[in-house]
């Protein structure tokens, strides 16, 4: 059997002529262009510039001084920076598991009830997501007020004395975790509802025929089928929680005694207060590395894969 090989068209000097990209590719590049341009302007170029500046004692009024890796070593050896990162991870542990669990339960409930009630529930749970974080912070700060606050009025009804919800080192971080959970619940629940509705009904029908109860159906069908969505929520939830910034800024200013100074607030405070800017930039880049490393770890542990119906 013979095979015919067609050589590509060549120019006069013998080099192959480059074929025109297919029309679909051109449209794809065209549609990607705005995102790529914006990403370059607002993310890629500033990041490269930030990396460059992190090697300097950057002053706005004097010539910047090259300091090598000193800003990075200063940040890495700063116990307050390390404490802020640890606090950020603790904050993730306080918020993300509860958010995932509550979202899952609410989503399960919404998919199991009638359409009208389900819609009402979806709207109710989504409303906090569209409220500004600053408004949420102010609202919760009023709830947590020591004198005349709503929460102390409620606990007072059962004979508990007034608590310094955001003034006590032990209570302040959990106190700002509550509005963080509340704000993140809506989007997470909607995504879970979408994922649950995507699970083929035939799986459940077969399981029911086999006599599987709700727990078994959830454990062996729903959760495995939602694996990729859960992975997405885990990563985005982790990144959002560790980067939480508005709540401690407005509600506590990072206090008492730095107990709510999360990593981004720590960096922001240095940006506002430092004479030179190299340290805050280096700290921000180190946080970026921490986020990337932990996200990669989550990906590796819970490797994503294509769903097979």
């Amino acid at each position: 059997m013979s095979t015919t090989v067609t050589s590509p068209p060549r120019s006069a000097d013998g080099t192959p002529l480059r074929a025109h990209p297919p029309r679909d590719d051109r449209i794809a590049f065209l549609m990607l262009a705005p995102v790529l341009i914006l990403l370059s302007i607002f993310v890629i170029v500033p990041t490269i510039y930030a990396i460059y500046l992190s090697f300097f004692n950057w002053s706005f009024y004097q010539d910047s001084e090259f300091v090598g890796l000193r800003n990075f070593t200063n940040a890495l050896t700063d116990p307050e920076f390390r404490a802020a990162i640890r606090r950020g991870v603790l904050f993730v542990l306080m918020t993300l598991p509860i958010q995932l669990l509550l979202s899952f339960l609410i989503a399960s409930f919404v998919t199991g009830v009638g359409k009208r009630l389900g819609t009402a529930l979806k709207i109710s749970v989504y409303i906090p997501t569209i409220i500004s974080a600053v408004i949420t912070s102010i609202t919760f700060a009023l709830i947590y007020e020591y004198s005349g606050g709503l929460l102390n009025a409620v606990v007072g009804l059962v004979g508990i004395e007034d608590q310094a919800w955001i003034g006590d080192v032990r209570l302040a971080l959990p106190a700002i975790a509550v509005p963080a959970i509340w704000m993140g619940l809506g989007l997470m629940t909607l995504i879970m509802i979408a994922a649950m509705l995507d699970v083929p009904e035939s799986f459940y029908e077969a399981a029911e025929l086999e006599g599987a109860n709700w727990w078994q159906r959830t454990l062996y069908i729903t959760i495995p089928q939602m694996k990729n969505v859960l992975l997405y929520l885990l990563i985005t939830g982790f990144v959002a929680a560790i980067q939480q910034y508005e709540l401690p800024l407005v509600m506590t200013g990072g206090g008492p005694l730095d107990s709510t100074t999360l990593p981004n607030l720590f960096i922001f405070n240095h940006f506002r207060g430092d004479t030179y800017q190299g340290y805050s930039i280096a700290a921000a880049l180190l946080l970026f590395l921490v986020l990337g490393a932990i996200s990669a770890l989550i990906f590796r542990v819970l490797s994503s894969e294509k769903l097979v119906d």
Binding site: E145, Y146, S147, W165, I166, G167, D168
Partner: peptide, 19 residues
């Protein structure tokens, strides 16, 4: 003094509200 500040030091709101 309260265990949690009633307001910023620079403001007189808590005093004005007789707290």
């Amino acid at each position: 003094i309260p265990k949690q500040p009633l307001g910023p030091y620079v403001e007189a709101k808590a005093y004005g509200e007789k707290k």
